[in-house]
Design a protein around this nucleic acid. Structure first.
Length: 427
RNA sequence: GUGGAUGUAGCUCAGUUGGUUAGAGCGCCGGAUUGUGGUUCCGGAGGUCGCGGGUUCGAGCCCCGUCUUCCACCCCA
């Protein structure tokens, strides 16, 4: 065993693992193409300042960062959105709107690893820039859902939980939350599932300075699991009513696309990132065994702050680590068995040249071809052909070479036929 | 960063109250098979038992440290 191994939280991709990765990334690309998104990429190393600007100085302890030889403070990218904001900001003026871009960057975080969470991962990022209407939110959600459907996952396997920062804001204000405590309250209610009602009320009255009455009203908001129930309870507030209407429109669009079973209204989805401004969502496995598979939403102010261009925007990120585990759990990983079109057998050393000639001719014609580096018994070579998953085996003995043919065996049926070499090489 | 658990062959694991040369299945390599595969049979390679130190006549097993992986925090992609 080597004295070296991969750094903690980093992965070696052996061929079987790589095949899974290729399947995941390939499926993402295919669905993005169906939705009309264009692929882009940026540098894996960025100025540290780019992330501090967006997320605050606390972010630095979670980054892979260092000082380069030119004295620049740099960081390996932990997320793609700042890069996107910079790139889009620089060119947005000349690109027709809406801009629909996607990327599959490898991202890095300096954090202690756990299941579904490494120090490195590949993440699909899919964003729409320059459209403020709710149709874009519905489109983004549909794309997120279809990404998972494309792997064979169904509504029995996952669900998108959808909320809206603006609706939540209106509800919190209605409940008596002071305007300047909203951000803190977001962070507190984000922990609702983990901490429970008592602890939540304690934090709301303590940290956020809410009255007992307001804290109780805030917690009560999250008892409503349906859009209609929220409308019934708070619809009289005109601001709440306006936000509810937009959410209802979003759900109606998803229903029209036939995806209503995949989305669920859920006010407890807040998302930690401060920059979200509108509809936000997360995709979870229905058994609740894994971390969020995907998360995203609308961030209308970020491009102005980072990219210098005022464009409404929304997007999501979907990592390969949790998705891989979900697919493995549900038996949806592809077969990784090897396949090759031809295996060429030289019966003896005398036919070796003819065999190499045939091998290369077949490869030039576009076939995948394998052969043994050592000439062994025919049985041995046949065994190797079988192990490599050869569809057909071409046997060249003295008779065949003399006649300009190959004895071609179709492995699945066992059927054999003498075929002129010329015919085999025809494209 | 904090707390807890974990580690034996490429993989999944066994290994008795501390006792000679650490085992199995799968996988890998070779042979049975000098013109025909998947099965079967036989043989082989591969481990300083995560690493370092300690206790002991003797450590895979006990103790300490450290690293790894996992779980819960923290934080969230």
């Amino acid at each position: 065993m080597s004295k070296f191994k991969a750094l903690p939280g980093f992965r070696d991709f052996y061929p079987d693992d790589f095949a899974v990765r290729a399947h995941i990334v390939g499926t993402w690309r295919e669905v993005a193409r169906r939705y009309g998104f264009q692929e882009y990429d940026g540098p894996p190393l960025e100025p540290l300042e780019l992330y501090v600007e967006k997320s605050g100085p606390e972010i630095v302890q979670q980054l892979y960062n260092f000082t380069d030889k030119g004295g620049r403070e740099v960081a390996m990218r932990p997320e793609m959105t700042p890069t996107l904001a910079r790139m889009a900001g620089a060119r947005a003026g000349g690109i027709p709107k809406p801009i629909k871009w996607f990327s599959v960057p490898q991202l890095f975080r300096y954090e202690r690893q756990q299941r579904g969470r490494l120090r490195e991962h590949f993440q699909l990022n899919l964003d729409i820039l320059g459209e403020e209407g709710v149709a874009a939110d519905a489109e983004l959600l549909a794309a997120a859902v279809d990404m998972l459907r494309a792997f064979g996952l169904t509504a029995a396997d996952f669900v998108a939980r959808v909320s809206d920062r603006r609706l939540l804001r209106a509800l919190l204000l209605h409940a008596g939350t002071p305007e300047d405590q909203l951000t803190l309250v977001y962070n507190i209610v984000d922990k609702l599932e983990r901490e429970g009602r008592e602890r939540l009320i304690a934090r709301l009255t303590g940290e956020a300075g809410l009255t007992e009455e307001a804290a109780g009203a805030v917690v009560d908001i999250f008892r409503h699991r349906e859009l209609d129930a929220v409308r019934e309870a708070y619809g009289a507030d005109p601001e709440v009513a306006a936000e509810l209407a937009r959410m209802a429109e979003c759900f109606a669009m998803l229903e029209a696309m036939g995806l209503r079973d995949y989305v669920r209204f859920d006010l407890t989805i807040v998302r930690g990132l401060a920059y979200y401004t509108g509809i936000v969502f997360e995709l979870f496995d229905t058994r609740g065994e894994l971390r969020a598979i995907c998360g995203g939403g609308r961030y209308d102010d970020l491009l102005k702050r980072v990219g210098g261009t005022d464009l409404p925007a929304l997007g999501f990120g979907m990592g390969d680590v949790v998705l891989r585990e979900l697919l493995a759990d549900r038996g949806l990983l592809p077969e990784t068995a090897r396949r090759v079109d031809f295996y060429v057998i030289a019966v003896t050393e005398a036919e070796r040249s003819a065999a190499l000639s045939l091998v290369h001719g077949l490869r030039d014609a576009g076939h995948s071809v394998e052969y043994g580096f050592r000439v062994q018994g025919v049985g041995k070579q046949m065994k190797a052909a079988s192990a490599l998953g050869a569809a057909r085996v071409a046997v060249l003995g003295a008779d065949e070479v003399a006649a300009g043919v190959a004895n071609v065996k179709t492995m699945e049926t066992g059927e054999e036929r003498r075929v002129p070499v010329e015919e085999l090489l025809r494209p």
